[in-house]
């Protein structure tokens, strides 16, 4: 299994668009930007709704369950911050509640070979420091 213990993850820097996402993650809740005009969820946050161009956007909770949309297994050790964890699975998750809102993460708790397109995953929260908690992923039982 990938050894994440010596990895130094770069810390996200929230900005005016993304602050509510990280505030929710700190409370171990997954909240995504949602258009108040057409109901569309999107991620990463953007200036306008990518469906209807409305600027009336708010963050709303979503269930932390979805499927692996895509993945890669990293072997290259050029990024020294992650070199101790190779090979590891970086995945892209499509949430059940937010089709099209693709979230990047790592598949934790299993061998990297378990990453496959279509596999069911659920969110787990990984605290980086007092301000930032990362949404991460493990295989779901459902």
């Amino acid at each position: 299994m990938s050894d994440w213990s010596k990895v130094t993850r770069p810390i996200p820097v929230p900005n005016e668009w993304t602050r509510p996402f990280w505030a929710a993650a700190k409370r171990e809740s997954l909240e995504l930007q949602r258009c108040q005009s057409c109901g569309h969820f999107q991620h990463p946050p953007f200036a306008t709704c990518t469906q209807c161009i409305s600027i009336d956007l708010k963050f709303e909770p979503v269930r932390g369950v979805g499927t692996i949309y895509a993945y890669t297994i990293m072997y290259h050790t050029g990024d020294k911050r992650f070199a101790s964890a190779v090979p590891y699975a970086s995945i892209v998750v499509e949430l059940d509640d937010a089709p099209g809102a693709l979230m990047a993460g790592n598949l934790l708790g299993v061998e990297y070979t378990e990453a496959k397109v279509g596999r069911r995953v659920e969110v787990v929260f990984e605290k980086l420091n007092d301000d930032i908690t990362l949404p991460q992923w493990r295989l779901a039982n459902d």
Binding site: R9, P12, T18
Partner: peptide, 16 residues
Amino acid sequence: NMAAGAAQFTGPFGFG
């Protein structure tokens, strides 16, 4: 050790 802008959603997971 920071991931700003669009990288805040990819950098922390080793998408370099």
